[in-house]
Design a protein around this nucleic acid. Structure first.
Lengths: 147, 147
DNA sequence: TCGAAAATGTTGAATGTTCAAGAATTGGGA
DNA sequence: TCCCAATTCTTGAACATTCAACATTTTCGA
């Protein structure tokens, strides 16, 4: 037998594990940066999506920021309390709730963008421009292939 | 001005976001496979680490399976209830708790390995052998560079 | 040797997430 | 037209995670 069918593969050889590990590390760094403003990563994502000034339905938002519906609803509740975003009913489809960013939200988002940009810059520096570009490309392809 | 300093970058151009998205998708697929056995991904990782038959301290385990200490403690509590693993005090350092896998745990782990392997095979098929290898390499480097 | 600080793991309260069910609205076929 | 199924979002209970504080053991310098 040249190869056993299920060799005792270490965890670190699984793609799923490497992704989890990398995601955890990068996310942690980003979290640390954003904590200056006391905001979780997901809220930054939400603000960023809403930054186009358009109204986005809860469903679309949930999809975009990688949260499921109930979780998003409760996070939006907090953000509304903080006057970062507000809800409006969609006139054309009254089942829908459209979310908008407030001026306060815009100002915060700008500051958060800077913090995030400085993190990306830091990664580029340590990891290299080329590798980063290549990694992004491969990740995009993987996401397409997987969904 | 050739370039604005903070262009309104879409979420999908951030490395952190791509990682989160890819991780979510792959993890979901794996979760779906493992749900046949009613086991969360983290428990599979724990079993896999313990599969070498050695005792592993809670701290080392937590590091290896990407969980923080209290979360691991409670997950191990459940696994002990299910007779998948057991605790022993470390004779050399009595602060430490060493974890071991049971026969039941080993049998389960074997089945889980098959399920996980079939997922990896499925990815390889859709995504390509070469791209997968390259992605793994880049992720490993990123993890090194980032920590 | 002694005692303070560090290391290791667990616990309980606060917090957050998820699942299942529910309310409101829309769409489309009988 | 009318009614039933599908869509969209929210809610409440069950569940899981996190933070801070604790108990135990070890380490190491005075």
């Amino acid at each position: 037998m040249a190869k056993s069918p299920h060799p005792n593969t270490p965890l670190t050889e699984h793609l799923a594990y490497l992704l989890a590990q990398a995601n955890r590390e990068i996310n942690r760094q980003l979290e640390t940066r954003l904590s200056t403003e006391g905001v979780p990563v997901e809220q930054w994502r939400i603000l960023k999506v809403l930054s186009d000034g358009e109204g986005h339905s809860m469903g679309d938002l949930a999809e975009a920021v990688l949260l499921n519906h109930p979780t998003l609803t409760k996070m939006i509740d907090r953000m509304v309390s903080d006057s970062l975003v507000y809800r409006r009913q969609d006139a054309h489809d009254r089942r829908k709730v459209l979310m908008f960013i407030s001026d306060r939200g815009k100002a915060l988002c700008k500051r958060l963008n800077s913090l995030a940009a400085s993190q990306e810059a830091h990664i580029l520096e340590n990891y290299g421009d080329k590798a980063t570009g290549e990694l992004k490309r491969l990740l995009e392809n993987l996401i397409d292939a997987a969904s």
